[in-house]
Simulated scan of single mutants.
Amino acid sequence: MTRPVDSGVIFIARLALSVLFLWSGVMKLLGYAGFVGYLQATGVPFVQVGAPVAVAVEVLGGVFLVLGFKIRPLGLFMAAYCIVTAVLGHDFWNVTDAAMQRDMVIHFCKNVGMAGGFLLLYVTGAGGISLDGARAPRGGRGLR
């Protein structure tokens, strides 16, 4: 069982992670043609499948984070998603322009850091301020 302060901190962490995904997913949706063009220009495979999947993952993942719904499986899934998008979308090792390479390194590391945050959510669960917490049986042991 988590302490109230732990649940509050986990809630803030979920919101902090959700901001990036909700913003990014909505911006990809609003500028969908540009997003698809970017993916094609960077050589991402299966763009016609990957683009709608990326938008759905980011928007739905962001909503699930806010609500605290299915956080443990979401944490594992989003950690993997962050690593895959780091490798496919921020391949700094293929960039020759120094300024662009620096930008790609920053984005790559950001994705790796977010993956770490998602792995922590996998371990902690959603906390008490969540749909998962509201559905958890009371009096159990361990973190919700």
Rank of each mutant, 00 (worst) to 15 (best):
M1I: 12
M1V: 14
T2Q: 15
R3F: 03
P4M: 07
V5D: 03
V5S: 15
D6P: 00
G8H: 00
I10E: 00
I10P: 10
I12R: 00
A13F: 11
A16D: 04
A16C: 12
A16I: 11
L17I: 08
S18V: 06
S18Q: 03
L20V: 14
S24Q: 13
S24I: 08
S24G: 15
G25Q: 05
G25I: 09
M27Q: 13
M27C: 02
K28R: 14
L29D: 03
L30K: 11
G31R: 06
G31T: 02
G31L: 08
G31N: 14
Y32A: 03
Y32V: 09
A33Y: 02
A33Q: 15
A33L: 04
G37K: 03
A41M: 11
A41C: 10
P45F: 06
Q48P: 00
P52V: 07
V53I: 15
V53S: 07
V53K: 04
A54Q: 08
A54D: 04
V55G: 02
V55M: 06
V55L: 11
A56R: 12
A56Y: 04
A56E: 05
V57G: 04
V57R: 09
V59Y: 02
L60W: 08
G61K: 10
G62W: 02
G62R: 01
G62E: 03
F64M: 13
L65V: 07
L65S: 05
V66A: 11
V66Y: 05
V66T: 00
L67I: 04
L67M: 11
G68C: 01
G68S: 02
G68V: 02
K70G: 08
I71L: 14
I71D: 12
P73W: 09
L74A: 03
L74C: 02
L76Q: 02
L76A: 10
L76M: 09
L76F: 07
F77E: 06
F77T: 07
A79N: 02
A79E: 09
A79M: 11
I83K: 08
V84L: 14
V84E: 00
A86N: 04
V87K: 06
L88M: 15
L88F: 07
L88N: 12
G89P: 10
H90V: 14
H90T: 10
D91G: 06
W93C: 12
N94I: 13
V95W: 00
D97H: 03
A98P: 14
A98M: 10
Q101F: 00
R102V: 03
R102N: 10
R102H: 05
I106E: 07
H107T: 05
N111S: 08
G113Y: 00
G113E: 00
G113R: 01
M114R: 00
A115V: 08
G116N: 03
L119N: 01
L119A: 05
L119F: 04
L120F: 09
L121Q: 01
Y122V: 03
V123Q: 13
G125F: 05
G125Y: 06
G127Y: 13
G128R: 08
G128E: 10
L131A: 13
L131Y: 10
D132N: 12
G133Y: 09
A134R: 14
A136Q: 10
A136K: 13
P137Q: 14
R138M: 09
R138E: 12
G139M: 06
G139Y: 04
G140T: 15
G142V: 01
R144A: 10
